[in-house]
Design a protein around this nucleic acid. Structure first.
Length: 367
DNA sequence: GTTTCACTAAAGGCTTCAAG
DNA sequence: CTTGAAGCCTTTAGTGAAAC
């Protein structure tokens, strides 16, 4: 089949993306569109000419959608074709540039809705090409062969392409989610670490774990690491090191600007991760004269969050919320507090966040 | 020679689980 | 209940190679 796009001759129109056209066994033609574009919404038209009305033998052809200029679209539609999900950008400048142009995008944890969109995009891509398992594309194909894969599955997601890429990799890497490391695995890991240094990919392959998994595990393995409850001496040492490194006097709040690796080196008996979470979730609060968390604080938190009227939990600025709240140990601590309150409500997993948790305070939440 | 692409490394963050 | 450990996830800052 031959298809023609007329973007060159059509003023006010621009090519924004391609869709895939396939033919059923019974001869019907299927147009694979991005999820947020329907043929009836009037925001685009398909222009094509066919020589003989038939699809060619490979049954797959690319045609192009002509879409009106972004300026003529409503804000909601505009996000769907935003360059955000189609550009591979990772630097701060790229982000600033896009932000200055008025683009917004999602960050942080993925919502259930987003994951659904991603999954159905992948499914459609795979089906359209007669591929059994998405993992084939992700792990076996050459870069050339999967050229349009990530851009296709990013459709309708308001996230940078890079974020989509990482998410997809993790989802289909079966060496992820393997679970707890067994003692003999730890021994092997130590030996591999000696041999291969920071070549996480090689180490991971030898252990049947993903590279990031083995890397994370190694971060917890300092030869001289204590476990369990911190001694007073350890806590004192940690505080000393942190205040010195941050260059502030004891008692001031320190929530950043600290290299935890070097803190751990100086504390000697704890890993970087242990030092970090001990400080951020406990010691900082203690040294700043923090007070105990009460049930009133619980209700206060629920109330405050429901007042915020945010669309998405990721929009909550925990730092703002935590500021000046003496019983809050840290922004991340407050966030986990919120999660633990939420967990006390039945079916919390089925309730997508909508900024309307008010019923909690008088119904399900009964402490 | 500069920009873009595809990807990696390091660090910080989030969530779950189990023990006390 | 709270705390600590562990593992998985996201962000930020790069890098080498290809494309322009």
């Amino acid at each position: 089949m031959s298809s023609a796009s007329e973007d060159k001759e059509a003023p006010g129109l621009e090519t924004v993306n391609s869709v895939t056209l396939t033919q059923d066994s019974d001869g019907s033609i299927i147009l694979h569109c991005p999820p947020n574009v329907s043929e009836n919404d009037g925001s685009f038209e398909v222009t094509m000419t066919t020589a003989d009305g038939d699809l060619s033998e490979d049954s797959v052809a690319q045609i192009q959608i002509l879409q009106e200029d972004e300026d003529s679209l409503s804000p909601g539609q505009r996000t769907d074709v935003s360059p955000v999900s189609q550009a591979w950008f990772t630097t701060k400048e790229d982000k600033d540039t896009l932000a200055n142009k008025g683009h917004k995008w999602k960050q942080g944890m993925w919502s259930k809705e987003e994951i659904d969109i991603l999954m159905s995009n992948i499914e459609r891509y795979v089906k359209g090409r007669g591929i059994e398992d998405p993992a084939e594309i992700i792990f076996e194909m050459s870069k050339e062969e999967r050229k349009d894969f990530y851009r296709s599955v990013a459709w309708g997601l308001n996230r940078p392409l890079f974020a989509v890429y990482r998410r997809v990799l993790r989802m289909y890497d079966n060496r992820n989610h393997v679970g707890k490391y067994k003692p003999d695995e730890i021994e092997k890991l130590k030996a591999l670490r000696e041999k291969h240094g920071n070549d996480w990919a090689t180490i991971g392959a030898a252990l049947g774990r993903s590279a990031s998994s083995v890397k994370d595990r190694c971060r917890l393995m300092k030869d001289t690491c204590n476990t369990g409850k911190w001694t007073e001496e350890e806590e004192r040492r940690l505080a000393e090191v942190v205040y010195e490194m941050a260059g502030v006097s004891p008692g001031s709040a320190v929530t950043g600007g600290v290299s935890w690796a070097s803190v751990a080196d100086q504390v000697r008996t704890r890993s970087e991760k242990q030092c970090r979470s001990k400080w951020l979730n406990y010691l900082n609060w203690k040294h700043c004269g923090g007070t105990e968390w009460t049930k009133e604080d619980d209700l206060n938190l629920i109330h405050t969050i429901s007042e915020l009227q945010v669309e998405d939990e990721n929009e909550i600025n925990w730092e703002d919320l935590a500021g000046g709240w003496s019983s809050v140990r840290s922004p991340q601590w407050l966030r986990s507090k919120w999660w633990s309150i939420k967990r006390q409500v039945a079916n919390h997993k089925e309730i997508p966040f909508s900024g309307t948790y008010t019923p909690l305070s008088n119904q399900s939440y009964t402490n």
